[in-house]
Nucleic acid binder design. Structure first.
Length: 507
RNA sequence: GCGGAAGUAGCUCAUUUGGUAGAGCGAAAGCCUUCCAAGCUUUAGGUGGCGGGUUCGAGCCCCGUCUUCCGCUCCA
């Protein structure tokens, strides 16, 4: 059902110039897409809406545009080099994939549990006279289990450090670890999945250094913290915002533009005094949800998802999920990142990344509350929610994109009712007047009803029609996309009227 | 990456057992029209994903490959 709608949405996106598969004439490139003539407009408008809300509307937030290439140490400090390098292994019978290190850790955990069980059993047997500490340190069974577990993880750590994947596989086989699903020991080789893209910097290939395409934009903000703080006369609390491309070599990339290898993030890192972070975390959660709702999309399409298991850098995290055609999925994350990143960069760079607080007369590494939203995902949220096939009273079907007017790629279509009697000339005059302020389109081909439908299909909120009455009193009709209703207004008032209709909703 | 399904015009699809491709919508040019798709004329657009094999002959059968879609571990 919704699968069907999703397919229609993808087709529509292509057919009307919103999104094309990348390099399609060469059969495309998996999980990479291009934005077409209307798609890039919509995407730009969403980005502008975000930038205005975050930067222009906050006197204590500034924007930057950091490079995609960054010094390789950045990613050691951020934890991405380690966290994004997973050794994976498949069980050939169950077809399940596991992280090799997790399998071994689970095995070790099992050994520890066995040791605890021995202790429990002994407790029951000896009753009150039981000396747990003595038993724990002397019982051969307990010691053996604990030793097994510790050996397993110690050896694993050594193998991981040496990047010895064959050794890791042998280790799993030696420990006789079985797949929890199939129960078999029929394992594939261990393979390393590096989720960061790398490339070489330097024109000569020897001596060239491996660098990564950033997997998140946030680090470009952290490494510029001192620059912005010093040159921008910033006082805590303050934020730094940035939009830009990020790259992840996802193992599976799916669901149209929802998960792409190359995607665009809109992030804001908000620097606060340590201890204040929960207050700001709550406040930004509220503010970000308002931003979504101000697009006029109903609240029931959104929900919160609180993280139980936190990433290595966070002490609180929640996601805004959106009801996509394939279900509720993450759209934006609001994370309290503590001082993890700045402290890590301070350690790795040897440079002080601290804020001097004149009120308390002391320096500290600020805490960070991050808002991080996927631009492509927001695009998909807006687009998929806007897509509608309406059955009208006469039984005809109207395909319409109910994109929030202020985000629509084309704001106004100017349509002469007929192609004669000087009407196109008047229409072109009006078109030129509006072009200065709005993305406009002119169409004189085919019956008027068909032209309306064409504009509906690309989400144009307003169609202006010039008719014979225009020639008499210089008034035109303006048709609203969603209601299909028209009103007649003087041509001179058009620009002001449209401007007032294009404001985002206040919440 | 593994398993399953599928790749024919911009989109949705047809071509019944192999005989060298069609429709609807869409697009373009024009005609007709004073306000909500489907009026008329004309036109463009496909090396049937790509490569190989079987055959007198392959969109259809076989193999390989690429891509997409649906499930699994990662994530914005």
């Amino acid at each position: 059902m919704s699968d069907d709608i999703f397919k229609k949405i993808i087709s529509h996106a292509k057919e009307y110039g919103f999104i094309f598969p990348s390099s399609e004439i060469y059969d495309g490139l998996s999980a990479v897409y291009d934005y077409g003539q209307y798609g890039s407009e919509l995407k730009n408008n969403i980005r502008k809406y975000w930038w205005k809300s975050m930067v222009q509307m906050h006197s204590n937030i500034v924007g930057i545009d950091a490079a995609i290439f960054m010094h390789p140490t950045t990613w050691k400090a951020s934890g991405h080099v380690d966290a994004f390098n997973d050794p994976l292994i498949d069980n050939k019978d169950s077809k399940k994939r596991y992280r090799a290190d997790v399998l071994i850790e689970d095995y070790a955990e099992k050994q520890f549990e066995k040791a605890e069980k021995e202790i429990e059993k002994a407790k029951k047997r000896f009753g009150d006279t039981f000396d747990e500490a003595l038993f724990r340190s002397t019982n051969p069974r307990v010691l053996e289990y604990r030793q097994k577990g510790e050996d397993a993880t110690a050896k694993m750590a050594a193998l991981l450090d040496a990047n010895d994947l064959d050794g890791l596989k042998k280790h799993i086989e030696d420990l006789e670890i079985v797949c929890p699903i199939s129960g078999s020991r029929n394992w594939t080789d261990v393979r390393q999945f590096n989720l960061m893209f790398d490339t070489k910097i330097g024109s000569v290939s020897e001596g060239a250094e491996t660098i990564y395409l950033r997997p998140e934009t946030a680090q470009g903000i952290f490494v510029n913290f001192m620059n912005v703080y010093k040159t921008g006369r910033m006082k805590i609390p303050f934020g730094i915002a940035q939009t830009g491309k990020a790259f992840r070599n996802e193992i599976v990339a799916r669901q149209f533009i929802f998960r792409m290898r190359e995607f665009e993030q809109m992030e804001m890192q908000f620097f606060v005094r340590p201890g204040d972070e929960m207050k700001w975390y709550e406040s930004w959660r509220e503010e970000r949800m308002k931003w979504h709702l101000a697009m006029g999309i109903p609240a029931e399409k959104y929900r919160w998802h609180k993280h139980e298991k936190l990433a290595h850098y966070a002490n609180a995290a929640a996601d805004i999920e959106f009801d996509f055609p394939f279900g509720f999925k993450e759209l934006e994350g609001i994370h309290s990142r503590t001082d993890f990143d700045l402290t890590a960069h301070q350690t790795h760079s040897g440079k002080k990344l601290q804020y001097f607080d004149p009120e308390t007369n002391e320096s500290y590494v600020p805490y960070v509350v991050e808002t991080s939203i996927g631009l492509d995902r927001t695009f998909l949220a807006v687009f998929s929610h806007a897509f509608e096939e309406q059955t009208l009273e006469d039984g005809s079907v109207r395909t319409v994109l109910k994109i929030p007017p202020f985000l629509a790629p084309i704001k106004v279509a100017v349509l002469p009712l007929v192609k004669k009697d000087g009407i196109p000339e008047v229409a072109n005059k009006i078109l030129d007047d509006l072009r200065e302020d709005y993305m406009v389109q002119y169409d004189e081909k085919d019956a008027i009803g068909r032209r309306y439908r064409r504009q509906d299909a690309i989400g144009t909120p307003f169609c202006i029609t010039i008719d014979y009455e225009t020639l008499e009193n210089n008034t035109v009709t303006i048709r609203h996309r969603d209601s299909m209703e028209q009103r007649r207004i003087p041509a001179a008032e058009l620009s002001a009227y449209i401007a007032s209709e294009l404001k985002p909703k206040k919440t």
